[in-house]
Amino acid sequence: MAAAISIQGLTKKYVDVWQKQEVVAVNNLNLEVQEGEIFGFLGRNGAGKTTTIKMLLGLIFPTDGDATLLGKPMGDNEVKRELAYLPEETYFYDSMTGWDILDYYARLFKIPEPERSRRVQICLEKVRLQPDAWRRSIRGYSKGMRQRTGIAQALINDPKLLFLDEPTSGLDPIAHAELRDIVASLKDEGKTVFLSSHQLADVELICSRVAIIHRGKLLTEGKISDLVAGDYAEVVAQGKELNSVIGQLKEFAPGSEITGGDTLRVTLPDDEKINAVIDVVRGAKAKIISVVPHKRTLEDVFVETVRKEDGS
């Protein structure tokens, strides 16, 4: 599979004019995004996600480094035909209707009528904006409707590569779920999506690969399944005779321990031996308090990674 985005050593620095202090927004970023995947670009606010996207789109200019989009150098005007960008928190032209905004963006792609109207309609339908709102001024739109319009404008040129910056933030649960599904459906159309977000649950659901960026530095990247590897289960029980079985339990789980004289905590690397542990515990007439299979989430990975970086 060809790389939709290939970033080499991308760096963006700012200089504090008065104190000559250097601020590195993006630091020597290297990244590859394959065609057809939904790539999650994760990071805290101010980590450098938006800066990276803006550099890739030629809105700002890198201090160093290079990148190609769909095989063309970034900033190339022609490759923009195949791109789309939904910026975070865009305040669209308030007085215009949803239809007119899409019509305007379609004109920027020089899409002629009647194709233009057809495209506008397809896009508005695709983002499930209620038809009765199409001809209403955007001023009366809810946040979710505006965001739908934003995604619709990104789809107007049927792009191959989409950059979506926090498309689901601040939405109500229903709108959130719907928009997430719309983004997920783009994959089925063979589009590549570069999704910048800190809605980690969404990313985990719809992305195949992610990268974590922190203070401009790429901390980790890879398949989600690889990153979240390392599930475990925990059994907690209470009983006076547990001391007698601790040695037996340590065979399953070396980390087993008894605290407070009668509380047992057994941590298992997987759930295969849960039944065996439970049998031993019940044999010791102890009361099982909880059996919790711990699933490692992207959130855990993210927090761990970032904390580790900050700690070091």
């Binding site: 700012y14 200089v15 504090d16 700002i60 200019f61 150098p73």
Partner: peptide
Amino acid sequence: MQKAVKKMPASV
């Protein structure tokens, strides 16, 4: 006040 350090694309 911050000033961007930039390398302009050759085309520009």
